[in-house]
Every structure is written in structure tokens, then in C-alpha cells.
């Protein structure tokens, strides 16, 4: 029987952060060695981009280079959400990508995760023996945060083609066809399993995904951990649905410097070394002193 059912939890009932905490406590009470999530004192940055990406105009600084970390609500809400979850002890206190993380899944200590769709490539490899035991769903709305069905932990991809490369025109054409045409997107899915991002390929892709054919040369083990086999045939329908809620954080050219500063102060909030308002004020101060205008790199 499903663990959530055993704990009397309906995922569809989780609408607010309080609901999530209540459900997390109920789950942990039912299964004392298990949690509905994991979160250590140094959470992976992608959780933050997911959460903040759902907000209107999420950005570190205005276009004239003035930092808005203390005034843009997404930052305070992101820190508060992490702090609430961390303090409620509903998440196994280990960080993503630590050596404990994979073992946490294997050991069934981690029985859920709020994460992006790229996890489909990792979870089946972490716990192939748990095939058929995992289900996916859209993120809950999680009020009072901005509607958390929206958001993304990515900022997009940029392909750089050098003018002086042997066939620049051909390279542009190849990329266009591969990613932006129905035939190209379907070919990429067949070759490496990437979900097509173009809407024109959706119907064909879904019919292919519902009746998946094992590619030539793929072993039984690898085939078993393909998303549609591991999570069930409805996986891709839900993944495509999530694309309708795509919103991204407005990264600026200094994001690689801004992100570690934000992470550092989030860690101080979680370990109790700083309050949320102190952390945000200090993060903004650090960005102003160390980066200045983020658009002038």
C-alpha cells in the first residue's frame, strides 16, 4: 500500500506551507525513520530558484543596477519557507548530493522530494529497486508563497556558435531543427530521452511515450529505469503539463557571484546565526560592496 495512503495523506490536500508541515509531521509520526523530504543546513540553490521563480519579476537588481534583495518579496519568502521546513523537522537533515543523499532514498528515509524534472534521470538510478513505488505531481500552490506550480530552477540554455567555426550556418540550422522543430525534438527524445519542449511535438510524443519501445541496444536494466517505466506511463503527460507553468528567475550577468552570497546567508538563517531580515540586509550589502552594478561585469 502507498506510504502516503498509510499515513492518511492526500497530496491534493496540500495547499499551504502549513498543510505541508502538518502532512510532513503526520508522515514522520507514522514512519519515524522516514521523511517527506530532505533538507540540510546548506540547501541546494535550485530549490530557491524554483520557489522565487514563481514570483512576479524575481531578480536581484533592477535594470539600472540597484539591488532589491531586501525589498523583493521573493527573497524573504524563500528564506522563510526554508526556515519553516528546516525548523519543523519534517525533512531529513541532509543535503542534496551529499553521500548520505542517495543512501537516504535507498534506505527509504527520504520518501518524497520537491524538485525539478531533471530528477527523473537520477532517482531511478539511485533506487532502481523502487520502480513503480514513486509517483510525480505538480508542486502544490503552497500559499502564502506565490503559486508554486510555477517556477523553474533553470535560466535557459545558450548555444554559442563561433563565426569562424567551419560551418556556422549549418550549426545554427542543426540546432534550430534539433530543438525547435517537431521532427528534431522527437528525434532527440528517441536518441537520448529528452522531453520535447516544442508544443507541436506533444501529441506525437505522448503517444510514443505511452507505448514506449525499447531502443535497439538498450539493456533491460537501463530500460527499466526510463522515466515512463519507473514512474508509470502517465509520467510524461504530467511533465508536459508542468511546462505550462514555466517561469524563470531573471538572472543578471553577475548571478554566479550573487548566488553564493545568497546561499551563505541562507545557511546562517537555517543555523540560527542570523534572522531573515538581517540575512537579507547583509546579503544585499555584500552584493553592493562586492559586485556594485551587476550589469557592469
Amino acid at each position: 500500500m502507498d506510504l502516503f495512503d498509510q499515513a492518511g495523506i492526500k497530496v491534493s490536500d496540500i495547499k499551504t506551507v502549513s498543510d505541508l508541515i502538518t502532512v510532513g509531521k503526520a508522515f514522520h509520526a507514522k514512519f519515524p525513520n522516514s521523511y517527506i523530504w530532505n533538507m540540510g543546513p546548506t540547501p541546494a540553490g535550485y530549490n530557491g530558484w524554483e520557489i522565487m521563480g514563481a514570483y512576479p519579476d524575481p531578480r536581484f537588481a533592477t535594470e539600472d543596477g540597484k539591488y532589491v534583495v531586501t525589498t523583493n518579496q521573493c527573497f524573504a519568502d524563500n528564506f522563510k519557507f526554508h526556515k519553516d521546513i528546516f525548523d519543523a523537522k519534517i525533512a531529513l537533515p541532509i543535503d542534496d548530493w551529499s553521500t548520505d543523499w542517495q543512501k537516504g532514498f535507498t534506505d527509504s528515509a527520504i520518501c518524497g522530494s520537491f524538485i525539478a524534472t531533471w530528477m527523473k534521470f537520477f532517482l531511478p538510478k539511485f533506487v532502481p529497486e523502487q520502480k513503480g513505488k514513486w509517483k510525480v505531481d505538480l508542486w502544490p500552490v503552497l500559499q502564502p508563497l506565490a503559486d508554486q506550480r510555477y517556477g523553474s530552477d533553470a535560466g535557459g540554455s545558450v548555444y554559442v556558435i563561433f563565426k569562424k567555426c567551419p560551418n556556422p550556418t549549418l550549426a545554427v540550422d542543426y540546432n534550430n531543427k534539433m530543438w525547435l522543430t517537431k521532427a528534431g525534438a522527437l528525434a532527440v527524445y528517441k536518441a537520448v530521452g529528452n522531453t520535447p519542449a516544442v508544443k507541436s511535438a506533444r501529441d506525437d510524443f505522448l503517444s510514443m511515450a505511452k507505448n514506449p519501445q525499447r531502443p535497439e541496444g538498450m539493456s533491460d536494466d537501463v530500460w527499466a529505469v526510463q522515466p515512463a517505466n519507473f514512474f508509470g506511463p502517465d509520467y510524461f503527460e504530467l511533465e508536459l503539463k508542468s511546462y505550462d507553468y514555466l517561469k524563470v528567475f531573471n538572472f543578471d550577468p553577475s548571478a554566479t557571484k550573487e548566488k553564493p552570497i545568497l546561499d551563505q546567508w541562507l545557511n546562517k538563517v537555517l543555523t540560527g546565526a542570523a534572522s531573515i531580515s538581517e540575512a537579507l540586509a547583509n546579503a544585499q550589502k555584500d552584493m553592493e560592496s562586492q559586485i556594485g552594478n551587476p550589469y557592469k561585469v
Binding site: 541532509i94 553521500t99 543512501k103
Partner: peptide, 9 residues
Amino acid sequence: QSLFGTEYG
């Protein structure tokens, strides 16, 4: 890292 893991070290 494996030796000093919190949960499974």
C-alpha cells in the same frame, strides 16, 4: 565524505 556522513557515515 563517506566516512563522515551524518546519517550513514
